[in-house]
Design a protein around this nucleic acid. Structure first.
Lengths: 253, 253
DNA sequence: CATTCATTGTGCGCATAACGCACAAAACGA
DNA sequence: TCGTTTTGTGCGTTATGCGCACAATGAATG
């Protein structure tokens, strides 16, 4: 089979780009906003937005378009078709309950990780992000675990593809340093990220393996740096995570 | 502004229908599968699938197409743009920790409810469903709360739009009976669904209100029928839920 | 192994869907 | 009130997308 332009739908591609124009800071957009964000002609943007509205994926208040819950069906089509999050969820809950911290599971998508499961115990605002949330892989604990699981050439390419801004004064951004860190993660079997993504936030992550030992995802425990030292995370949290890893490994095909 | 066919993109609409063809029982599909499920011509289905693959939203193994995590960006566009789930999440966690049960929050989308937040405590397999999951509103506790919040005419129309199969021997399906039940839910301020959705599953739900008292979502506690009686749910769980409702109400705008 | 059936890749002619530009009207902000 | 920005829509153009047909491939069956 050949890859040809005639085998794809330009309008569909444009429409998907329009959906992705919405995010945390852009909850509702005008036609001009969408044209600017996507680079599409204003009339084209308008047609995409009206298509979404006509099908119930968006609302229009006379000026602004906003997405509706129906759009969740699109992401749900993936989550529903992927057994891993459902398998991992109870283990994250057990781990979260045992440690009293937030636990999450994510997979690598390009240069980002995307959360596919989470569990949290704290009465205060959760550290964990919602399912579907994304973080840059280069400075997230689970991201480093997942990058480390790639062939080194592939991992390096993905790191290069990332802008790698210093999100805190502690963020490591140098290519050679990050590649060395990935090598260290490969060796020790876990990644510990200490206030690189966000000041006050510390996380430790290990791979989620399948029965063949292949890395299918990563899971982590995140906590406030003021409450748990890195040493304590390695001494106390890591063994419990590895115990869960073993249990999960015997189930995930 | 007029609603005209020329203002929409046919290919985009077809593409979205193709994404929605994937679900729990259809994790990977052939071109012929998609054509059958969507009613589209085979060549059109093929183009949509190839467009998704070209853009990284799907993988192709030579025969089967499956969605990739990138598709989560589409649903994430909505979740990221909606503050309610993030606001409600810590309250669900507190409630879940206090009661030892699974708690969830959902909104109404047509004739279904869609989960937008959840918290769970149990070491056994969670009762709660993942964010993005959907349930038929007519026989779910949160569904009844959300239907009860609609004008009666609107609620009746949505009930009629639903197939309403009896999912268990206890499922109530009669229109008049359900409308009376919605009236009762309006009066008492909560819905209790007892093994109607699934044998062994019992859930109680109340509205999530905003500062204006408008119903924005519903939240519930679900548990195993063998462990908690309906009376106990009303006596013990309901007051705690109502306390959370008050706290949430003072924040949600 | 041959046959039958289902599926897929692809060519291709055709029709119209989609494009993008332009202009008038409306909305907004100073 | 004026200037700027945005929007709704008309419209001529074109190339996109359609769907049918056919050959090739794969799977199932006898």
């Amino acid at each position: 089979m050949q890859e040809r332009d005639a085998d794809t739908l330009g309008g569909f591609a444009k429409g998907l780009a329009v959906i992705e124009a919405f995010d945390e800071t852009r909850q509702r957009l005008t036609i001009a906003d969408v044209a600017r964000l996507t680079g599409l002609d204003r009339a084209t943007s308008r047609r995409c937005l009206l298509t979404l509205t006509r099908l119930g994926y968006a609302d229009f208040d006379g000026k602004f378009f906003s997405l509706t819950p129906r759009i969740l069906r699109l992401g749900h089509a993936y989550l529903a078709s992927t057994p891993l999050p459902r398998i991992v969820q109870p283990y994250l809950e057990r781990l979260s309950e045992a440690t009293g911290e937030s636990c999450s599971c994510s997979i690598l998508d390009g240069t980002e990780i995307v959360y596919v499961a989470r569990a949290s115990q704290r009465r205060v605002m959760s550290i964990g992000l919602a399912v579907g949330s994304r973080l840059p892989a280069y400075c997230a604990s689970m991201g480093r675990v997942l990058l480390a699981a790639l062939p080194p050439g592939e991992a390096e390419a993905r790191l290069r593809d990332t802008a790698r801004p210093a999100l805190t004064p502690r963020t490591r951004t140098d290519m050679a340093d990050l590649m060395a860190e990935l090598e260290r993660v490969r060796g020790q079997g876990y990644a510990l990220v200490d206030e690189e993504l966000e000041i006050g936030l510390r996380a430790i992550a290990i791979p989620v393996l399948d029965t063949n030992g292949a890395v299918r995802a990563a899971m982590n425990i995140g906590c406030q740096a003021a409450r748990v030292s890195p040493e304590r995370m390695i001494e106390t949290f890591l063994p419990q995570m590895q115990a869960m890893q073993k249990l999960i490994r015997s189930i995930v095909r």
